[in-house]
């Protein structure tokens, strides 16, 4: 009985692992259909929310879970995590505000190229790759322009995030660093009050 139980216990994870690797099982599941339905009905929200979740939550959590050799590495991890959170928040804000009318405008253009792009319309009709590339160039034009304010805002916000999330640790580290200096001062003062003895011992010179 015990041997059978052990065999079953060792075989179960293997079977589960095979099921996990089998993507057909995931694709056939009702849960994946529910995800696909949400993503299909709310594509912009899904993309923005998933980006925010990945960059703003999972990435900083994974970065902070990495081991750190010393205090400096811990601080650098905090900076990287704060940057990830700021980048996720700014990306989400830009996608849900500035990009909405821009992508709606682009949708109008690509939906009626005869009206909006008469010079390229015929060529695009006969060449789907050209149509795809015109759309991509028009998508990335404002994106490249917006990269400047995006980077500046992310940089500013990452300081705020770092202060809010890791500020206490920094203060504590500064206090710890300052503490040994404060304790060293009275010893030096005490020594300077005894100049003869100090000079004899080779102390303060």
């Amino acid at each position: 009985m015990a041997i059978q139980a052990i065999n079953q216990a060792t075989q179960m994870p293997k079977a589960n692992a095979q099921q996990n690797v089998n993507f057909n099982g995931i694709l056939d599941s009702k849960a994946f259909e529910a995800v696909a339905e949400f993503a299909g009905k709310n594509s912009a929200t899904f993309n923005a929310a998933s980006s925010l979740l990945m960059a703003g939550v999972l990435r900083p959590a994974a970065i902070m879970a990495l081991p750190a050799k010393d205090e400096q590495e811990q601080k650098n991890k905090g900076i990287a995590a704060a940057h990830a959170i700021a980048s996720g928040l700014i990306g989400f804000a830009i996608t849900s505000t500035v990009m909405k009318p821009i992508s709606a405008g682009l949708g109008k253009v690509m939906g009626n190229t005869e009206k909006y792009l008469p010079k390229l319309h015929e060529k695009m009709q006969s060449n789907p790759l050209l149509e795809k590339n015109v759309k991509k160039v028009m998508q990335f034009g404002p994106d490249i322009i917006l990269a400047v304010p995006r980077a500046l805002l992310t940089s500013k916000l990452s300081h705020v995030v770092e202060g809010v999330l890791f500020g206490k640790k920094k203060k504590a580290a500064k206090a710890e660093a300052a503490a040994p200096q404060q304790t060293a001062q009275p010893v030096q003062q005490a020594q300077s009050e005894r100049p003869v003895l100090d000079s004899f011992k080779g102390g303060n010179k």
């Binding site: 923005a48 990009m99 909405k100 992508s103 949708g107 404002p142 994106d143």
Partner: peptide
């Protein structure tokens, strides 16, 4: 972000 915000958005 512009590729994330699909033109097909609601």
């Amino acid at each position: 972000p512009i590729t994330s915000a699909s033109p097909k958005s609601n």
